[in-house]
Every structure is written in C-alpha cells, then in structure tokens.
C-alpha cells in the first residue's frame, strides 16, 4: 500500500517525465542533425537509417572545416553581432534618455516617428535598402551588414520603458549634488539599467546572429558571408556530402543555443518587456 504522499510523488514524477519526453520529441530535429553529423556517408545512404551508430566519426567536421571557410563565416557573424548590438545599446540609450528626461519642442512627434518605425517591417524596405547599399558601393562590406541593424524602435522603446521606472528623485538628487545631464546618464542611469541592457543584448544576439534575408542580399563574396549564408550554400554544392552539411549546421547552431540556454531568462525579459500591455 502506498501512502498518499508516495502516491503524490509518483504522480508528479510521471508528469515530469511526460513533459520531458514531449520536450525531447519537440527538439528531435536537433538530435537528428547531431546524430547523423557523426555518421559516415556510407551510413547515410544505407537503408534503413540508424539514429545511433556503432562507430561515430568526426570526419565530417574535419572535412567541412577544410572545404569551406567556416571560421571566416563565424568571424563575420561575430563582428556583425558585436557592432550591431553595441550600436543598438548606445543609440537606444541616448534616445530613450532624451525622451524620458527632457521636455523639448516636437518631442511627441519625434517619439511618434520611433513608434512608426515599428509599424514598417524590415521585409517591406529590404529591397530598396539593398539598392541604396548597392548605389553606395557597399556590397560585400561589414558596413552593409551592420548599418541597418544599428538601431531599432523596439530597443528604444525597451530602454524608455526602463528609464520610466527609475524614480524621478534620483535625477533631482544627482543634479543637486552637481551631476550634469550626461553624468547622470553615464554614471547612474546606465549602471542601473545593466540588467535591461543585458536582456536586450542577448535578445539581439539571437536575432542578429540568425539573420538571413539581409546578409543574403548584400554579400556575394564567399569570404564576406555570415555563418547562416555560408551554411545555406552548402546544400547547393556538389562537393559536399550530406553528413558534412549536417556538421556545418551543427557548428552554426551551437553558439546561439549556448547563448540561449545560459541567457534564456534575459531573453524572456527582453522579449516580453513592453511587448504586451496588462
């Protein structure tokens, strides 16, 4: 006979197991990618496919690194992410600070413009931006990859929401102690907003690292491709076997998954802050 307490324990244990199994089924495409990336080409063309192989090999990984400049792709992605995130944090902090702490003519209209940018999806202007970049002769440059990602209405909105929660007394006290406007921003508001900035940064990393449409348009030189574009060209190549493609895909997935797993609380905060009312 089980006691009520034991029964409860079994019940919660089963529900936990069911939830985890559902999760594993859900992420099974990732497991598939990983499992078959360590199998030989012969194993991949043998029917039936086996998820677990007796003799795993890292040959695919070695060959994909030798055949395509994966490290250069990764380097490009890191450069783009670094400058785009830095730009968004700096520019959105400055703008949000102005909107929260200053009264000036046309403030309302200027803020409306920021909100309007959120109504114009990047996909609508992507073609025209491509023409602009082309006319500027910036195809295949970091500038082309970074420029349109340097600012977003969402990040200004997010920083503004945060500054609004800072008590007004802080600023008054700081001003009385002789702290100027910029001093307040750099020495008090910014340090206090580190958690918000971190959320924004992690959220932006996943978004910018995973970009596809824009980097596809503005790069056509192999060495300027970001990792996502580099990987997408593997499937159309004749000299690359499927195991190697999967190995490349796993390499591309790893950074964002690691950032996601360790930064998920930040991402959730960044995503949901200011997203919905109520």
């Amino acid at each position: 006979m089980m006691t009520a307490r034991q029964k409860k324990k079994v019940k919660s244990g089963t529900s936990f197991a069911v939830k985890v199994i559902l999760g594993i089924i859900f992420i099974s495409p990732l497991i598939v990618g990983l499992a078959f990336s360590v199998q030989s080409e012969a194993a991949l063309v043998t029917y039936p496919l086996k998820l677990i192989t007796e003799n795993p090999t890292i040959q695919n990984y070695l060959e994909i690194f030798a055949k395509v400049p994966l490290l250069a792709y990764l380097k490009n992605s890191v450069i783009v992410c670094f400058f785009a995130i830095l730009g968004q944090i700096v520019f959105s902090s400055l703008a949000a600070y102005a909107f929260v702490y200053f009264e000036f003519p046309f403030k309302r209209q200027l803020f409306s413009l920021v909100l309007i940018t959120m109504m114009i999806p990047g996909e609508v202007v992507v073609i025209t931006n491509y023409v602009t970049i082309q006319n500027m002769g910036l195809i295949n440059s970091y500038l082309a990859l970074i420029l349109p990602s340097l600012v977003s209405g969402t990040s200004i909105f997010l920083m503004r929401q945060y500054y609004l929660t800072l008590p007004r007394d802080f600023k008054e006290a700081a001003t009385q102690d002789g702290c100027g406007d910029m001093g307040y921003l750099f020495r008090i508001a910014t340090p206090l907003s580190i958690p918000t900035i971190s959320s924004l940064a992690v959220y932006l990393f996943v978004q910018i690292y995973n970009q596809f449409f824009w980097p596809l348009l503005v790069t056509n030189k192999d060495t300027m491709r970001t990792i996502q574009i580099g990987i997408s060209f593997l499937t159309t190549s004749d000299i690359i076997s499927y195991g190697q493609i999967l190995a490349g895909a796993v390499v591309a997935i790893v950074p964002s998954v690691i950032i996601y797993i360790f930064g998920q609380d930040y991402i959730i905060k960044g995503m949901t802050a200011g997203g919905v009312k109520g």
């Binding site: 936990f16 939830k19 985890v20 559902l22 999760g23 594993i24 859900f26 992420i27 495409p29 990732l30 598939v32 990618g33 078959f36 991949l44 063309v45 043998t46 029917y47 496919l49 996943v206 690292y209 995973n210 596809f212 996502q228 574009i229 990987i231 997408s232 593997l234 499937t235 499927y242 493609i245 999967l246 490349g248 895909a249 796993v250 591309a252 997935i253 964002s256 998954v257 950032i259 996601y260 797993i261 998920q264």
Partner: peptide, 30 residues
C-alpha cells in the same frame, strides 16, 4: 522542459533547413 519547448527559437533558419532537407529528402530521407 521549459528550455526545450522554447529552444527552436534560438535556431537559425538556414541550419534548421539543412536538417529538414535531410528529413524530407526522397533518397533515403529520414
């Protein structure tokens, strides 16, 4: 499980497409 349910959100479409192409391919696809 919370992490697993949200995880594909962090996956870019191009490596994901590589995996799905393998799942969907006709010749000995998964």
């Amino acid at each position: 499980y919370q992490t697993m349910y949200a995880l594909p959100m962090a996956i870019a479409s191009s490596p994901a497409a590589a995996i799905f192409l393998f799942i969907y391919r006709q010749k000995n696809g998964l």
